[in-house]
Design a protein around this nucleic acid. Structure first.
Lengths: 331, 331
DNA sequence: TTGATTTATGAAATCGATTTCATGTTGAAT
DNA sequence: ATTCAACATGAAATCGATTTCATAAATCAA
């Protein structure tokens, strides 16, 4: 910058003013400086800028697994919106480890980033609230955190789970099993809650044997069905709390010689890419992943730039039940 | 930091020395300072550190589409390796736009990051070489760039394409069509080259009608097959330059009443998740995506820390042909 | 005891931008 | 002609760490 100033015969202060479109600079001076800037190919140093402005124009996104398509889509929405508003995005993959997640929080406290987005975080609310209390800017996707300064975006797990049950009942099912994800995940809990409420609404007495844990993974789903099949309990439909587990259900059924949807209806959640390609096509619940990412970024940027949390602080986006082959009664 | 220094009754210089494990500090002073640091929950400011050290411990990864599983896997490999070596990762999604890609290069020139990784870049080699000439640290995944300071990691497109042809010939096919990706992508070009060489090796006269462009997309693959089917040319196998297009082939065949692999054998490239779940299971070429990402990060970090490019500068990793149902001759 | 080393610490410069405050210039108004 | 406002610019402080250089204290050898 000093070089530019010297070569243009002005002070660094003026160069800075030119760069920041400060009105207080004569247009001829401006032209002269701009010319030198282009000649030298000068670019302002980001670190210096960050230090002086106390801003980094960067946000961090922490996800359990980047390669999982759900998170990849959310990240896509985040990156696109951030880019549009001139922000950069740092990603952190926790590999489902709360310790790693905790470490990434340092990005906020050491001012590497201006704001942080946690997607389905594993850490307890208190940890997040503690940071928010210190005025760090935080957004959460896929979970609700009760703190006036924490932004949340998610879909209503309870609501769409009830819809799934409703749909299965309409297809004539009254014995519906449920595959949950890992026990401490909020999604798991809420989808289970919706499932139970759905049963209740249709006056279907609930049987605990219908519930198995599949840890949100294909393998887990497979094993859960095997356990289910070994029990003396009857069911004609399975609601899997995500598509991965539903994939496991398909595999188990193939091995057990159970036909889908003929003998067993299956519904998943996530609308991952595979669900549309597998045979029979999997009925599932679709969430607006890109939109969720974009929404939380907008809220965060608002907060960072205005100093006030966005209004509303919580956005619950609509999900959609996609009825495909796996749950449609064969005519 | 000044607060810490004051409270510990030492100078900021000493605090800094403690933080950086500088040996020139008495152990009792060190303990005293550490205690205050913990009391105040002090964390060194990243921007100041970056400015002073002229390093950011950050690398940027530029991909055409984050949500595409191939890139997501590469990113995963990059992030994991970077994290292990205490580096942060900024991502940029170009949405296949060279202009956007060019913009992301500013992250390097304005010193937001210490190094940059481009995954299957769209920009011409010259642009990258220009930066490398200025001693910016650059890595490229999925393409070869001839510049002594640019690190490259990729698999041998020509080699595995020849293997695909070889495999199809072994299955009894001699009329093999080829679906290319967009014309300016290096992968497209090299896979075509391998296809042609493969044909030559088996003394199969090449027919230009066998080649159609599918732009690496499912839709493109579908349309390409439709065009192919409309031509007065016969073929019993299709080599699609990626799995997405192969998916399009499946769809087209379903509509045209062509059975796979009975009437048409299909092979793709990428081993994306769906290829294993679709019916019939798609034969494809698997690349070590995570490993490619990890490898390029290691090379970059070596370069950034030693000042010298890593040796070797180019790493060609092995790919694997996965023969599944879509190309196996029905007995 | 004295001088030479080693060890521990602080003062101040530095990284490269932004911004406040002061100063100088120009032109309009009286 | 004089005063005042508006405008244009520069000098210097600042952001928060690191690092050089200087200095003081402690240790050692003679």
């Amino acid at each position: 910058m000093i070089d530019v100033a010297a070569r243009a015969g002005v002070s660094p202060a003026t160069v800075s003013r030119v760069l920041n479109n400060n009105s207080l600079v004569a247009s001829e001076t401006k032209d002269k400086v701009m010319k030198v800037i282009h000649e030298l190919g000068y670019q302002p140093n980001a670190a210096a800028k960050n230090l002086r402005s106390q801003k980094t124009m960067t946000i961090a996104v922490i996800v359990p697994a980047i390669n999982n398509s759900y998170y990849a889509e959310v990240i896509k929405g985040i990156e696109n919106q951030a880019y549009a508003q001139k922000y950069k995005v740092i990603i952190g993959d926790t590999a489902n480890s709360p310790e790693k997640e905790l470490e990434f929080l340092n990005l906020l406290t050491n001012k590497t980033v201006d704001g942080l987005i946690l997607v389905t975080p594993l850490l307890p609310d208190e940890e997040l609230c503690r940071l928010a209390d210190m005025d760090y800017v935080i957004g959460v996707v896929g979970r609700h955190v009760e703190h006036e300064k924490i932004h949340c975006v998610y879909t209503d797990n309870v609501k769409f789970s009830k819809e799934v049950v409703q749909h299965l009942v309409e297809q004539g099912h009254r014995e519906i099993a449920f595959l949950s994800g890992y026990a401490d995940a909020i999604d798991s809990y809420e989808r289970l809650e919706g499932y139970l409420k759905g049963l209740r609404e249709h006056h279907i007495p609930f049987r605990p044997e219908w519930i198995e844990n599949g840890n949100f993974s294909e393998r887990g789903g497979y094993e859960a069905v095997m356990r289910l099949a070994a029990k003396p309990v009857h069911f004609t439909a399975i609601y899997a709390a995500n598509d991965e587990m539903a994939l496991g259900v398909y595999q188990a059924c193939a091995e057990l010689g159970i036909s889908i949807p003929g003998q067993l209806a299956v519904v998943g959640v996530d609308n991952n890419r595979i669900s549309r390609y597998i045979t029979p096509k999997l009925s599932t619940v679709s969430q607006p992943k890109n939109k969720m990412g974009g929404a939380v970024v907008q809220m965060l940027i608002h907060h960072m730039e205005s100093g006030e949390p966005a209004e509303p602080r919580v956005r619950i986006l609509e999900s959609e039940l996609l009825v495909r082959e796996s749950s449609r009664t064969v005519e």
